[in-house]
């Protein structure tokens, strides 16, 4: 009698999971068209969002004005690509997998960690956001006279703040991806809506000192606020016009690190709790039709 041979299959390593999810996201995001149209797709939205602010500025300051406030607006708008692409993108990917392609349950039953799969899916979005960020800034510098000198940019500060900013953005994306699993209605609108709210709270396009006192205090507990401020300080140097509640750059960085750690803990916990409820209630393959 022939014995049944049992072979032990290796559980995929985290790197394999990451690699597969990065490739999946890249394909699902970009293989609907050719590279030229895809580049246009990546740049048109952030570029025109920045241009809206430029024309608002020119409506007030005159058609040829290009003062420091212009740099403030363009830098904030360009950096916001990361939030739109990654933070809003992660929950949208989960929704598309579940409702449009009906494949979330198959992803879920594979021998890998779902949270790692989602982190992997955010990586191509970080790349496309970085591309949008660079193109928007280059457009601003070359054609709109935005006062940023690429030779005087504080690159270590820019990259250091970006690392922590991205950790916070991914953590928030995970939290909202978890929420989409349990929401009955509004799951499609929720990511964009939250991005819109943070646009206000984090002072993406205006100084947070313009917010009411209580909201300004709250903004200091949002890591994106400090990340945007450090990005502006790194890009604009002394050309900053608007005030910030914390003057010392090292203190701003410290605030960014602390609030990022807090956001990471809250984000992962929120995701875990929502995931638990979604499994308990059988919502992982639900179609809301919303």
């Amino acid at each position: 009698m022939q014995a049944i041979e049992v072979t032990r299959t290796k559980i995929p390593s985290p790197w394999q999971t990451l690699r597969a999810s990065i490739w999946l996201e890249w394909q699902s995001r970009g293989n609907w068209t050719n590279p030229v149209v895809y580049t246009l797709f990546l740049t048109l939205r952030p570029l025109t969002a920045a241009l809206v602010l430029v024309f608002m500025y020119r409506a007030i300051s005159g058609p040829n004005a290009h003062g420091a406030a212009l740099g403030f607006l363009v830098a904030g708008s360009a950096a916001w690509s990361f939030v739109e692409q990654v933070m809003a993108g992660l929950p949208q990917s989960v929704m598309a997998d579940r409702e449009e392609y009906a494949m979330l349950k198959y992803v879920y039953i594979t021998p890998q960690r779902f949270i790692l799969f989602l982190v992997g899916r955010s990586v191509p979005r970080m790349g496309t956001a970085a591309f949008s960020f660079i193109v928007t800034l280059a457009f601003g510098i070359l054609l709109l006279g935005v006062p940023i000198n690429p030779l005087q940019v504080n690159y270590p500060m820019l990259l250091g703040s970006l690392v922590f900013g991205l950790i916070a953005i991914v953590a928030l994306g995970l939290a909202f991806a978890g929420l989409t699993l349990v929401l009955k209605r509004g799951a499609w609108q929720m990511p964009d809506a939250v991005v819109g709210a943070l646009y206000l709270v984090a002072g993406a396009i205006f100084p947070i000192t313009k917010l009411p006192g209580w909201l300004e205090s709250f903004a200091l507990f949002v890591p994106l606020t400090h990340w945007l401020e450090l990005t502006r300080r790194a890009l604009l140097g002394n050309a900053q016009t608007f005030s910030y509640p914390i003057a010392d750059t090292r203190q701003v960085f410290l605030w960014l690190v602390i609030t990022t750690i807090g956001t990471l803990i809250i984000g992962v916990l929120t995701f875990r709790i929502c995931e638990h409820f979604a499994r308990e209630r059988g919502q992982l393959d639900r179609t809301t039709g919303s």
């Binding site: 602010l53 608002m56 500025y57 809506a193 939250v194 819109g196 396009i205 205006f206 313009k210 917010l211």
Partner: peptide
């Protein structure tokens, strides 16, 4: 979702004008 949160974006643009 469709009224309060879009309003926050509107407020952001108003604050840009106020800052300018």
């Amino acid at each position: 979702y469709e009224a309060t949160l879009p309003l926050l974006r509107v407020i952001a643009f108003v604050l840009v004008y106020r800052a300018l």
